[in-house]
Nucleic acid binder design. Structure first.
Length: 418
RNA sequence: GAGCUUGUAGCUCAGUUGGUUAGAGCGCUGGUUUGUGGCACCAGAGGCCGUGGGUUCAAUUCCCAUCAGGCUCCCCA
């Protein structure tokens, strides 16, 4: 085979036939559990208006400043979606989903795009599933999101993780806290990392998220937001914690958890796993009570999360969990000679109409080669057809696992397989 | 954007202290069984040793550049 002339772009990967079954298995689990939770699926376009993403996620976030794929065509700006919260909210506002009544419990599965340097657990096109509950500020909504998230990992068998929880407060609490934090940091500003100095003005809370060594001593003794929440936010957070405990969902409070998108308010959470290496976040989310209004809707509280599917698979691999069943086909028709091949082609649909998966050789190969093929395809039965069988109207049905054969007419064969 | 690292068969990798025809395992194709898979045995196909340049009598091996991966920092799923 010649060297490939065309290859995927950096950080974009093909999901090949050997890999696709586990994707389907995961997707099935997500669809099933979503149905159990009464979440409804939403599918939005891969591309959005650039302005939506910038407004939604925040002009100064890393995602917007350096990680989006954007281009202009005619008068329109297009951006490959880097996440789905803003687009889902866009759809909610655009189509007046609030008019469906109640709160909207939505979930999604799909590819996202970020123009970062790829490494383990990070690609430029990657896949997330997630949920968005729009229209409720009840802590039950927060907890149901988290419960759904945890349920997926529980079903798959991933148990080795850490659910980190924090409240980043409502606008009032945040403003209070930001000024307290800035007051605290101000005298040390010179000693902070360059990045943190920049964030001092733009988004001081993200300094808490810094991993720069020179910042650590200041971060450790910094005032924490939980001491500066107003009564309402404090009560909301307390209820989230209490409800999680009532569901036996374990979590650790992490006052330094500040997430990378500007829209988060109050509840913030992140699920990390020691099995992932450097990119250790399996999933993350939180409440975003201001985003709907920011995007042009009525003030509407909302909460959601997103989970990385490739990272989930990495964790599975580390833990030796396999999601996919072996491939198999019920019947492989081994046909010898032209007449037999014609018969095989016409018989395949009869099997399929009876709910029996069936295939045959496309290469006119020897019997031996066809048997090897049947074996490789993990066929339950090989149906052997040659001139003798055609004449008698009875065919040799070989059980591949048992290595037993019987000679039967077609009706009996179908009956036996079913 | 920065650092480190790796490019040899479809895959995983040996190897050459620079020297005729470049190797293994797995996979693939055919055969031993001209109508019977998995096991075994035999045979075969498949490589400009990532690309370009330099040093040398001679480069897949040494040097430089370049391209493409991987890992890490930053950040996130």
């Amino acid at each position: 085979m010649a060297k490939a002339k065309y290859t995927t772009h950096l950080g974009m990967v093909d999901i090949l036939p050997d890999e696709s079954p586990k994707w389907r298995a995961l997707e099935n689990i997500i669809h099933e559990e979503a149905a159990n939770f009464n979440f409804e699926e939403i599918r939005t376009p891969i591309m959005e208006q650039t302005e939506l993403i910038k407004r939604g996620i925040g002009q100064l976030t890393d995602i917007v400043t350096k990680e989006i794929f954007a281009f202009t065509k005619g008068d329109s700006n297009y951006v490959l979606r880097p996440e789905l919260t803003a687009p889902v909210v866009r759809a909610y506002v655009q189509h007046h989903l609030d008019q469906r009544g109640g709160s909207q419990k939505l979930y999604y599965i799909g590819p996202m795009f970020r123009a970062e340097r790829p490494q383990k657990g990070r690609q430029r096109q990657f896949h997330q599933f997630g949920v968005e509950v729009i229209g409720s500020e009840n802590p039950v909504a927060d907890v149901e999101c988290i419960a759904f998230m945890m349920r997926i990992y529980q079903r798959i068998g991933i148990k080795n993780f850490n659910l980190k929880l924090n409240s980043v407060g409502d606008p009032e609490s945040r403003e209070n806290y930001k000024s307290v934090l800035k007051e605290y940091l101000e005298p040390h500003l010179e000693k902070l990392s360059e990045l943190s100095q920049k964030r001092f003005d733009t988004n001081p809370m993200r300094i808490l998220d810094s991993k720069e060594p020179e910042d650590q001593e200041f971060i450790q003794s910094a005032p924490v937001i939980s001491d500066h929440l107003n009564e309402e936010s404090k009560e909301h957070f307390a209820q989230v914690c209490e409800m999680l405990s009532s569901l036996n969902i374990e979590y650790t409070l992490d006052p330094l958890l500040v997430r990378g998108m500007d829209y988060y308010t109050r509840t913030a959470f992140e699920l990390t796993s020691p099995d992932l290496g450097s990119q250790d976040a399996l999933a993350g989310g939180g409440r975003y009570d201001l985003l709907v209004e920011e995007i042009g809707g009525k003030p509407t509280p909302a909460v959601g999360f997103a989970a990385g599917m490739e990272r989930l698979f990495i964790a599975c691999e580390e833990l030796g969990i396999s999601l996919a069943d072996e491939k198999k086909v019920d019947v492989f028709i081994v046909s010898l000679g032209e007449q037999a091949r014609k018969w095989a082609l016409k018989t395949l649909p009869i099997f399929r109409e009876n709910g029996i998966s069936a295939t045959m050789d496309y290469l006119d190969r020897s019997m031996r080669a066809q048997m090897k093929d049947a074996n490789r395809e993990n066929a339950t039965y090989a149906l052997i057809v040659g001139d003798n069988e055609l004449e008698e109207g009875k065919f040799t049905l070989r059980n591949m696992k048992e290595s037993e054969e019987s000679v039967l007419d077609l009706a009996s064969i179908i009956e036996k397989i079913n």
